[in-house]
Simulated scan of single mutants.
Amino acid sequence: MNIVIDSGNTYSKAGWFENEKLIRYTTGLSFDQLIETIRLELPEQILFSSVSYTEKEFSEALQLPVRVHSLSSETPLPILKQYETPETLGADRIAACAGANFLFPGQDLLVIDMGTCVTYDLIDKDAAFQGGLISPGVKMRFKAMHSFTKRLPLIDPEKEPFLIGKSTKTSMLSGVMNGMLAEIEGIIERYRHKYPELRVVICGGDITFFESSLKPPIFAVPELVLIGLNRILTYNVALQ
């Protein structure tokens, strides 16, 4: 069994895999909770991807005889990188694209990850990561309106708001949620104009707000980053 870990600034997510099959996953873990969770079931291999902790810090905290791999800009990948600044490329972006390419090989793919920021990344049919764009996420947009004005409240996103807001709150909801939907649909359309056979794969915590409103075919794969991390892990194990 393999464990892959996506560790963010505040919380971590871990996935358990038997070969290429995701058995289970857990999220919202603090670093200490992550260590305790892994100790309950000794894996064969671990891939650790983190923006907050080093591989050394993780291994020293774990104190188990397990091979720990880490994801960095130097890690061999099952996909190509055609990106001008690969050292700045976020691990979640490359992992999501590796996961999409594993699930849908030989296809032009637009991978949309809806987290704190929304990333749109193209991986072509030759498994080459071409790059993409980064846009503010839903909660960031609400927070920006609240932070940069004196009277607009901080509100939470809601599914399918009315197009015409009848109050300040509902107007903000319409602006952010309908604006985000229009952005997603517009960018997909522009990419499909260039890549007619494009397949769209969407993941991230905020997909629940939009997946029912997006025009098919859109493939929602909530744990795409974990699937990609495991694909990177098995690729590196095979190289040994």
Rank of each mutant, 00 (worst) to 15 (best):
K150R: 15
A98N: 02
Q82P: 06
A61Y: 09
L47H: 03
L22E: 09
L181D: 10
G15H: 12
E20F: 13
E20C: 05
I187E: 15
T54F: 06
L80W: 13
Q45F: 09
T119I: 04
P43T: 15
K21M: 09
G106A: 00
D6W: 12
I46F: 12
F48M: 00
M172E: 07
I188S: 05
R190F: 03
Q45I: 09
A61W: 14
V225E: 14
K21A: 13
R199G: 08
T10H: 15
K81W: 03
G106E: 04
P86E: 10
V68F: 09
A98T: 13
A91Y: 12
C97H: 02
N19C: 03
R151S: 11
P157V: 00
T168E: 11
I202H: 08
E185H: 00
A91T: 04
F58Q: 06
V221N: 04
L71V: 07
L40T: 13
D113W: 02
R93Y: 05
F31P: 10
S7W: 12
P86W: 09
F104W: 02
R93Q: 01
L64A: 06
Q45A: 01
Y53W: 13
T26H: 14
T119P: 14
T54M: 13
L224E: 01
V225A: 13
F162D: 15
F148H: 08
A96S: 08
T149H: 00
K159Q: 14
E211W: 00
Q33V: 04
S167D: 01
M172F: 04
S50T: 02
S147T: 07
I184S: 04
S30Q: 08
G179R: 01
K166N: 03
E223D: 05
L233M: 05
E211C: 10
S135G: 06
L71G: 04
S70K: 11
G175Y: 12
T149E: 04
I207D: 00
K56Q: 12
G228Q: 04
S12E: 05
I227T: 04
A95M: 09
S52Q: 13
G186S: 11
I207V: 05
L181S: 05
F209H: 14
K194M: 11
F142G: 04
S167I: 09
L229C: 09
S12Y: 02
S59V: 13
K81G: 15
S73W: 08
D121H: 07
Q130I: 10
L22F: 15
L122I: 13
N101T: 02
T54K: 06
L226G: 15
I184G: 06
N101L: 07
R231S: 12
F104Y: 07
L154Q: 08
G106L: 00
I35G: 11
R39L: 11
L22K: 00
S52C: 09
I5E: 00
W16K: 08
Y83M: 02
S73Y: 12
Y120S: 00
G15A: 05
E55Q: 14
P65G: 14
G90T: 01
Q45S: 11
T234G: 02
V68R: 11
S50P: 11
P43M: 14
G131N: 12
P43A: 11
